[in-house]
């Protein structure tokens, strides 16, 4: 059975495991450093032609409504802002594998993508509303929060039904069922993957704690933003897999973020509007 496969094996032996383009990771690191400037970010972008082209296309898209054409990468970074460029780089770098179906989680084509992107948009919104985390970091953390699903899906093929039955019978959440049946859950696998890829620590933490925010020892408010963002996105049905809404919502996150339960509805409403606006833009560029 699959639990004899260790997390290390999953991360090391899955040959078609996705990767994030090196330039995208470098841009992410650079934007987080205090010495970052449009010029330093542009210098990294130049090393990746496909990425550079997308950044220029975004800067020139109707979304930003500029009257003149931008051809210089440095200028594009100034226009878009370093943080948008970083988010674009990550969206562009993850879309090719996130849009693939994940049969191990009953996710059809595009469904994982919708869930990741939706959670990114929702987490960013929560961060903006509460000012408890940096908006762009919340976007990134939301986008990458379920990395473990991508890696686990390959090994889970055909086993989800059994895990679901077990969860239903025991009355436990899906991640708990994963832990009991496999020995680990998609959060732990995602954490492993993220550390293996040398992603920033806060991204690793969000992978590990997004279903148990109260256990987070570091970056807790960011984890809370992703936890609430994940809830908002999932409840709106964007990219629901077989695990559906079979997760525990931790109300402590709302307390820590100072969100009143009745505010969730307004946040969700805003999320639906934003998602519609962003999705077509990013998809067009990332494709």
């Amino acid at each position: 059975m699959s639990h004899t496969v260790s997390i290390e094996q999953i991360v090391q032996k899955t040959s078609d495991l996705p990767t994030i383009p090196a330039a995208a990771i470098k841009v992410m690191r650079e934007t987080q450093s205090s010495k970052a400037s449009a010029a330093t970010v542009a210098r990294i972008l130049v090393t990746d032609q496909a990425l550079s082209a997308k950044v220029l296309r975004l800067a020139n898209s109707a979304f930003y409504g500029l009257s003149r054409k931008i051809t210089d990468l440095g200028e594009a970074v100034v226009v878009l802002g370093m943080k948008s460029v970083k988010n674009l780089a990550l969206v562009a770098g993850t879309y090719p594998w996130m849009q693939r179906p994940l049969t191990g989680y009953c996710l059809g084509p595009e469904e994982m993508w919708r869930h990741a992107f939706g959670t990114a948009v929702a987490s960013q919104l929560v961060a903006r509303a509460t000012r408890k985390a940096l908006e762009d970091v919340a976007f990134t953390a939301g986008l990458l929060h379920d990395l473990g699903k991508v890696a686990l899906s390959v090994w889970l093929e055909n086993k989800m039904g059994a895990i679901l039955l077990y969860a239903g019978r025991e009355g436990i959440s899906y991640d708990e069922a994963e832990r009991r049946v496999l020995g680990y859950d998609h959060c732990q696998v995602g954490y492993h993957l993220a550390t293996n890829w040398n992603l920033p620590e806060e991204i690793c933490a969000c992978n590990l704690f997004h279903h148990k925010p109260s256990n987070a020892t570091e970056f807790q408010e960011l984890v809370d933003c992703v936890h609430v963002g994940d809830y908002i996105c999932s409840s709106m049905g964007y990219g629901l897999g077989g695990d559906g809404l079979l997760y525990r919502f931790d109300e402590e996150s709302l307390v820590r973020l100072n969100i009143k339960p009745e505010d969730i509805e307004a946040l969700t409403d805003e999320f639906v509007s934003q998602y519609e606006e962003y999705e077509s833009l990013f998809k067009e560029l990332a494709a």
Partner: peptide
């Protein structure tokens, strides 16, 4: 569980319209 699941889905073709869909477990609304 897996066994039960398999038997159950096989015995209810009308509910799951064939085992192909269920074996690959594609929700795949799209």
């Amino acid at each position: 569980c897996h066994e039960i699941f398999r038997v159950w889905t096989k015995s209810r073709p009308s509910e799951f319209s064939g085992e192909k869909r269920f074996n690959t477990l594609e929700s795949n609304e799209r």
